[in-house]
C-alpha cells in the first residue's frame, strides 16, 4: 500500500494517456441531461429577431482553444442558421488568427457573405477602451476591416447598416478563458444595457454564477459540458454541426472515473496507513 501511494508519477501519466485514448476510441455514449444555463443561452440567441446583430467575441488563445472552439462554432452555426448578422471580435492577442479563421470557416459552411451577413471586426489592444468606445461608436474603434482579402471602411459595409453603437446590438456572446468577462459586464452591460452571454472555461466559470443570478449575464456555457449541451440543442433545430465537444465528453466520462478512483485509492490508503500507524504506536 505504501508503494502504491508513493508510485512514480510517470506511471500516473501513462495511465492518464491510456484511459483517454481508450475513451477516444470507444466513445461511450453518456446520456447527460442538458444543463439549464446552456438552455438559457440557447433561448437568448433564439430570441434575437431575424437580421438582428450579435457580437461573437472569441476572447481566447490557444491555451483555451480545445475547450472554447467547439462553443464558438456552435454559437456561430446557430447565429448563421437563424440569419442573424454576426460581428466577430477577438480581444485576446494570441487568438486573433484562430478567431478570424473560425468565423470564415463557419460562415462558408453556412453560405454567409463577408461584409453582408457578417464581418470580423478584429482586435484592439486595450479591451476596456475598446468596449467603452463601442458604447459610443463601433466604427471609431474598428475603422477598417478586411473583407474578402481587401481593406474596407467599416462604415460602408452592408452588415453594419443601423449599427452605430452597442445599444444597437441585440446580444453579445463572449467565449473566454480569463476574467476578461468582467470587462464586458462592467463596460458593456452596466454602461449600455448590452445583453450578455458567456461561454467560459472550467477554470473560471464558477466566478460567473453571481452575474448569472443578478441578470448581468443572461446565459452561460460551462466548459466542455456546456459546449456539448449547446451542440445538441443546435443540432436538434439546425443540422450540419460537428459534435466536437460531444466526442470530448465521452472521453471525459472515463477520465473523471479514473480520477475519482485515484482519489478514492489515495484516501483509503491514507486511512489504512493512519490506522496501522496508530496500532503500531498506541501512545
Amino acid at each position: 500500500m505504501e508503494r502504491l501511494l508513493n508510485i512514480d508519477r510517470q506511471w500516473i501519466f501513462l495511465v492518464v494517456v491510456v484511459v483517454m485514448l481508450v475513451g477516444a476510441i470507444a466513445q461511450p455514449l453518456i446520456p447527460m441531461p442538458i444543463s439549464s444555463e446552456s438552455r438559457q443561452l440557447y433561448d437568448v440567441v433564439g430570441a434575437v429577431p431575424e437580421r438582428g446583430a450579435v457580437i461573437v467575441a472569441m476572447d481566447y488563445g490557444p491555451a483555451s482553444k480545445d475547450e472554447l472552439d467547439a462553443m464558438s462554432v456552435a454559437v456561430l452555426h446557430h447565429a448563421f442558421a437563424r440569419n442573424l448578422r454576426v460581428l466577430g471580435i477577438c480581444f485576446d492577442q494570441q487568438g486573433v488568427s484562430n478567431a478570424e479563421r473560425l468565423i470564415m470557416d463557419v460562415a462558408a459552411d453556412s453560405n454567409r457573405r463577408d461584409g453582408d451577413d457578417f464581418v470580423f471586426l478584429g482586435f484592439q489592444s486595450d479591451m476596456t477602451a475598446a468596449i467603452l468606445g463601442m458604447g459610443t461608436s463601433i466604427k471609431d474603434v474598428f475603422p477598417e476591416v478586411m473583407v474578402d482579402g481587401e481593406s474596407r471602411t467599416t462604415a460602408e459595409l452592408p452588415v453594419m447598416r443601423g449599427l452605430e453603437k452597442l445599444e444597437d446590438i441585440a446580444l453579445s456572446v463572449q467565449m473566454t478563458g480569463s476574467k476578461d468577462y468582467e470587462k464586458w459586464i462592467n463596460y458593456g452591460n452596466a454602461r449600455t444595457g448590452l445583453t450578455l452571454a458567456t461561454g467560459a472555461t472550467g477554470a473560471i466559470v464558477t466566478g460567473l454564477y453571481p452575474y448569472l443570478s443578478s441578470g448581468q449575464v443572461s446565459g452561460l456555457l460551462r466548459s466542455t459540458r456546456g459546449a456539448a449541451d449547446y451542440e445538441r440543442l443546435v443540432l436538434d433545430a439546425h443540422p450540419g454541426l460537428e459534435r466536437s465537444a460531444g466526442r470530448k465528453m465521452s472521453v471525459q466520462f472515463l477520465a473523471h472515473i479514473m480520477l475519482l478512483v485515484f482519489i478514492a485509492l489515495a484516501n483509503v490508503g491514507g486511512l489504512l496507513g493512519r490506522r496501522t500507524a496508530a496500532e503500531d504506536d498506541p501512545a
Binding site: S125, D126, T128, A129, D140
Partner: peptide
C-alpha cells in the same frame, strides 16, 4: 472619450 480611447490603443 474617443481621443483617449484611441490613445490607449
Amino acid at each position: 472619450e474617443s481621443p483617449i480611447n484611441n490613445g490607449l490603443f
